[in-house]
Design a protein around this nucleic acid. Structure first.
Length: 628
DNA sequence: TGCTAACGCGCC
DNA sequence: AAAGGGCGCGTTAGCA
């Protein structure tokens, strides 16, 4: 691979058609509806040459002339998704796409957050060329708000300039990466087409199931409100349970008013206080402990859970359906969104148009996962990286015990469960097989081991550990027990704490944290106030960042060898695909084997000492997935 | 009315 | 003194 990246940039401009709302210009699926269109395609080079094609009849010829080439662009999932929507999917797939903004992230990923607007093209031009007069003029032009269609000539000039600037940014940013970063950066570009395709295609929601589950939720909320006497008074006489027009209790919705109820009216004693304002806390941790003093608090906890389900996972998709006029929603993925390299999803554009849902926060409960379904004729397939975080930390720390567990294929959580219980590992596994409830039960030793393994990878205090056990795992343990679990973990895996120290030292010495594929995060703030969080980033980034590296490589390889699998969405350590029903399970297993054989040494220049394995699950929908 | 801060909470 | 990390979304409160 050449060290230089002197490639042309492509930039499309879009507009609503006719009287369609302005913002449709940002929504690729509107092209199929006939309410949005591509108005021109500009191509520009770093040298300053550029041209614009404005006739729709010439788009295909233009794209064909670019086949086999590498093209850059800025925020390319937008351009690619529009081109796909407009019917150029075959042409798009014959071009190698490289996003200039993402290259810049590979280069400049850091703690500093002063970029405004974050990672935009104008910002990139300012960053790389701040002393050039042409750059200053460009940034000034970008700052002027002009709406599409206002001035045709302006948009033509702007489109060309955007393309030229993008090409310049891509060239210079790429040249400053290390050879390994260039390689890894290119791997991450393999996500562009899959993400663009899935954005345009959307996610189907089973709204009939929403209608089924909503009444039970609102009725239970209303019942709790009346019981506690916190319902909204103006409707107390006219609204019966479950009747339209019921509005959730404003007292319970407001942390401030709930605090007033709990601590002033009910005279309960606060268990914790907020970090910033020192106000008595009403969060789940506080309420969980408060429930020991007063049974009513259990009802409040339940109400809170139902309220979140109602607003975030029921009402929000309903809003999107209304806005889109469709039961297919379009959550928007951002590649390299978190500083560790993870994707995130957003449900709104311009902070106000509801187009999707918070896919990556979707509740684990079956009734909610059942709402998300593949298109008719397709099945849901998930590849998930088994015990990803633990395997990566085993490798980074070089801990012999943890490494051996994964190399030998032992059950990690059972190992720690056996340490906690004092039962020998072999007997523990025998008991597990026989269904010994002390071992396999809800809060049995294996579950305790699982909690201990997952909660102690980073620097958690015993107090917080105990709260987590109670809030997230439903286990009520005293301080001593939590402390003993933590001790057990670090006694069993002695190299974890030294890893923390070495990660911090490396961060201080080099000025950045680094993942296995060479993804970096610059650590700028070591002053007294920021020290703790900077250190935590130094510890966490290599692990979470390498997880992101795995995700990038897996998407690339699946796209290459299993092109019939249609990328659907990413959930950090799980990749979700829509696959046609007639694709046999043997093919799905082939893909898992391919993933398990990926040559990390070849791609990353680093070979992990711990096997990084993948599992595959398949089902008719998310709630029905079964391991193959 | 529109904006941000604070809080709380879902997922990994 | 003590402190898991990473996100995005929905709500109320408070201010201009």
């Amino acid at each position: 691979m050449s060290n230089k990246l002197d490639i042309p940039a492509l930039d499309i401009e879009t507009a609503p058609t006719g009287d369609a709302p302005q913002e449709y210009a940002l929504q690729p699926w509107r092209v199929r509806e006939g309410t949005a269109m591509i108005t021109n395609i500009a191509v520009g080079k770093a040298s300053g040459e550029a041209f614009v094609v404005q006739k729709k009849t010439q788009y295909r010829a233009l794209l064909r002339s670019l086949e086999g080439q590498t093209l850059t662009g800025y925020n390319l999932t937008f351009d690619i998704s529009f081109l796909i929507a407009a019917g150029y999917v075959e042409e798009v797939k014959k071009i190698k796409w490289v996003d200039a903004g993402i290259i810049w992230k590979w280069l400049s990923n850091s703690q500093r957050k002063e970029r405004r607007p974050a990672w935009s093209l104008a910002d990139a031009v300012k960053y790389f060329f701040k002393d050039e007069p042409w750059a200053v003029a460009f940034v000034k032009m970008k700052e002027q708000e002009v709406h599409a269609g206002a001035q045709g000539k302006y948009w033509e000039t702007r489109a060309k300039l955007d393309a030229i600037m993008t090409a310049r940014v891509a060239t210079v940013a790429y040249s400053r990466l290390t050879p390994q970063q260039q390689k890894s950066c290119m791997i991450s570009m393999a996500s562009l087409i899959p993400v663009a395709e899935s954005y345009e295609r959307g996610v189907m929601v089973d709204f009939s199931l929403i209608d089924d589950i909503t009444p039970a939720i609102t009725e239970e909320m209303a019942t709790i409100e009346y019981k506690l006497g916190v319902h909204n008074h103006q409707q107390s006489k006219v609204v019966r349970l479950g009747v339209n027009g019921w509005i959730p209790s404003k007292i319970l919705r407001s942390p401030k008013q709930m605090a007033n109820l709990l601590y002033d009216v009910w005279k309960l004693t606060p268990k914790s206080f907020s970090e910033k304002t020192k106000a008595p806390s009403t969060d789940k941790a506080a309420l969980t402990y408060l429930a020991d003093d007063d049974d009513h608090v259990i009802e409040i906890l339940r109400w809170r859970q139902l309220n979140t389900q109602l607003t975030k996972y029921i009402q929000s998709p309903l809003k999107s359906r209304e806005y889109l006029g469709s039961e297919v929603l379009h959550p928007q993925a951002r590649i390299f969104s978190t500083y560790t390299g993870r994707m995130t999803y957003t449900s709104k554009i311009k902070k106000k148009y509801s187009i999707g849902m918070a896919l990556h926060q979707w509740p684990r409960q079956k009734e909610f996962r059942a709402l998300i379904r593949p298109r008719p004729g397709y099945k849901h397939v998930e590849y998930d990286a088994a015990g990803q975080e633990s395997r990566l930390i085993a490798d980074y720390s070089g801990d012999e015990n943890m490494t051996e567990i994964f190399v030998m294929g032992k059950d990690f959580h059972s190992f720690t469960g056996s340490e906690i219980s004092g039962i020998h590992y072999d007997d523990f596994m025998k008991g597990k097989k026989e269904g010994n409830t002390a071992i396999t039960g809800d809060h049995g030793y294996r579950y305790q081991g699982k909690f201990t393994n997952l909660a102690n990878n980073y620097r958690i205090g015993v107090k917080k550990l105990r709260v987590q056990a109670r809030v997230q795992y439903g286990m009520n343990v005293d301080f001593m027990t939590a402390a003993s679990w933590q001790n057990t973990f670090h006694r069993g895996f002695k190299k974890i704490k030294p890893y923390w120290t070495s990660a911090i030292n490396k961060g201080k010495l080099t000025g950045y944290a680094e993942s296995m594929a060479g993804r970096r995060y610059k650590l700028d703030f070591w002053d007294k106030e920021s020290k703790w969080s900077t250190e935590s980033s130094a510890i966490n980034f290599p692990i979470q960042g390498s997880g992101a590296d795995m995700k990038d490589l897996a998407i690339q390889e699946i796209g290459k060898y299993f092109p019939e699998f249609e990328f659907w969405f990413d959930l950090h350590d799980g990749l979700h695909y829509e696959v046609k029903n007639d694709v046999p399970n043997s093919r799905l297993i082939e893909c898992r084997e391919m993933l398990n054989k990926m040559d990390y040494g070849k791609w990353w220049g680093y070979t992990p000492t711990v096997p990084l394995t993948w599992d595959v699950q398949v089902g008719s929908r998310w709630s029905e997935l079964k391991e193959l």
